[in-house]
Design a protein around this nucleic acid. Sequence first.
DNA 1: TGCTTGAATGTAAGCGCTTACAAGGCCGTG
DNA 2: CACGGCCTTGTAAGCGCTTACATTCAAGCA
Lengths: 342, 342
Amino acid sequence: MNKPLKNILLADVAQEAGVSTASVSRVLNRAPHVSKQLRSRVETAIEKLGYVPHGSARALASRRIGAIGALVPTLDNAIFSTGINCLEQRLKHHDYRLLIATYRYDLDDELEALHTLIQQGVDGMVLIGHDHRPSALTTLTRRQLPFLTCWHSIDDANWPSIGFDNTAPAHALAEHLLSLGHRLLAVVGAPTEGNDRARARLQGFIQATERAGCPIPPERIITVAYGIAEGFQAFEALMRLKPPPTAILCGNDILAFGVMLAAQRAGVRIPDDLSVTGFDDLPQARFMTPALTTVAVPAADIGHQVADALVARIAGETPAHRQLLDAPLVIRESTGPLNTTA
Amino acid sequence: MNKPLKNILLADVAQEAGVSTASVSRVLNRAPHVSKQLRSRVETAIEKLGYVPHGSARALASRRIGAIGALVPTLDNAIFSTGINCLEQRLKHHDYRLLIATYRYDLDDELEALHTLIQQGVDGMVLIGHDHRPSALTTLTRRQLPFLTCWHSIDDANWPSIGFDNTAPAHALAEHLLSLGHRLLAVVGAPTEGNDRARARLQGFIQATERAGCPIPPERIITVAYGIAEGFQAFEALMRLKPPPTAILCGNDILAFGVMLAAQRAGVRIPDDLSVTGFDDLPQARFMTPALTTVAVPAADIGHQVADALVARIAGETPAHRQLLDAPLVIRESTGPLNTTA
DNA sequence: TGCTTGAATGTAAGCGCTTACAAGGCCGTG
DNA sequence: CACGGCCTTGTAAGCGCTTACATTCAAGCA
């Protein structure tokens, strides 16, 4: 059994088993109308020869490659990698593989990667959010490729989606701070270019504060890349303002961690001197001291449901255009009433 | 231009351009010996028809699919997702796609996923570490599939590798603590089943302490899954021991964060009352208070170099069997001299 | 018994591309 | 001017599988 296995073809199996190639194929594909004995004869032959089907040939003949493509801004973001991890595991159950491409929030890169994946012949596509080049939608539609967007989900979008509303929880977070008496709010957000989630969260913060009659001045809204270091530095910049904010709304948990760690270094007490909020509810959030008030993003759920729904679409079903998941506020200890004694 | 684009074939392009299918194929594949005018005529036709090559057909005829497979324990681990992220980006430069499968440290799952990826026809494979079912190596070799392991790299392994020595830095970490006067050490490690990296680190800790004549008793070596919560709980368990350890060696940064956050909650001062070490040097490590003493794992480098080396192997080159990267100790503030006043 | 029916299996025509080989055209050289 | 050789292009044979259609055969029924 030491000869290279590459050259063993379906035809060899057929010969070994004394049946036709069609029958071997039927056994391989669990087609109906195959007798027990034929099946076992073929299986024995496959076993004996160590036959492995040739994926590309199969794909060419059957018009499906058994893989779906995922277009993700980056995997270097804990919440995405959690979602993708679940997506992949679930797809495996459906017997689909995952082809991944990242585009670092560059929508032209994304479009190019989309074309590449389509060219590979993926059976379906998953995109994140609704921010894409218009021609991405056209391409997917024209090629009649089953697809789904996830993470962000808004009402009137052209894109079918499974996700949550990013604006409302952000709005609620801001209201929560306002209700605690805070009026000097500041925001540390992620860049909004090519990122509708970041934009939606920012809008939530802004709307809530404007509605309450205490809009946040632009210089108190800073935008930094994803990262602990960035949050750390943002804290320092904000606390130099006169007067410094009494509460900081962060676009995601990582930025919030950066802010909290910087505060800890600077001797600024949370929540006594400063309230801080995050967004994502990473595992770490509850273990910080104080535990972080944030929004629980259903990353694992999204991964699962996207897998199920996309496979259904590939199978010809047409599930709901939009599936809205819950992203509840998780109020912990990093937010507290405005301290008026200071 | 609104008809479905699926049905436009290479032959259509050939007809439109008034050339043979072979010529179109040559243009597509940047083959030599194609005149300027023929090329431009074909390119115009491709543009006009919106032609996209059919990946599977191409793969079948050319015996390469333009994708490599990666077998990863999980993406839900910051250091892996960073490495994979870099790998994917680099592969894109080489015009290769990434097919991902996860196996949650279950080597039978890994073997199965390996077969699946091979069946898909990947042009090369990346695995993590040297812990695999023996038949994995046989399969790869028999199929003559270019492959590489990464992350862990030891001298006498059968596996070609690009990675670092996990034992030596662990050893050094333990020595560092010993040299600070600590004798009551404890370990919070990751499960070693199917994980040679975790095992190597543990070995490093054990060897160094035994060599120094103060071996760590088994009940002070606890093994928990990857996660902040797990580190948190491990701290609580260890501190209940009499006498409690004066230093804790953690198998990775996430566990160390858990330990530190638990210590913070419990009012245990680091490094005064307790020294803590990590392993990975996640971005957050330097921003903790105190900043975490750890080992800098070259995750991004690994991603890049694996991509380059694997592509080279696919191209028929045979780079070094082993490429050893540096994983330096990063001594920060979470470790300090044994406090004898307590 | 003879016919219908449908399950089980085989035959062979693709799937859409690459590439070995053949052929044609042009050049420089003797 | 004839010829070898190279560059360019075309022809057509696969690549390894799936599947529509054809065929066979046994069972069911009147």
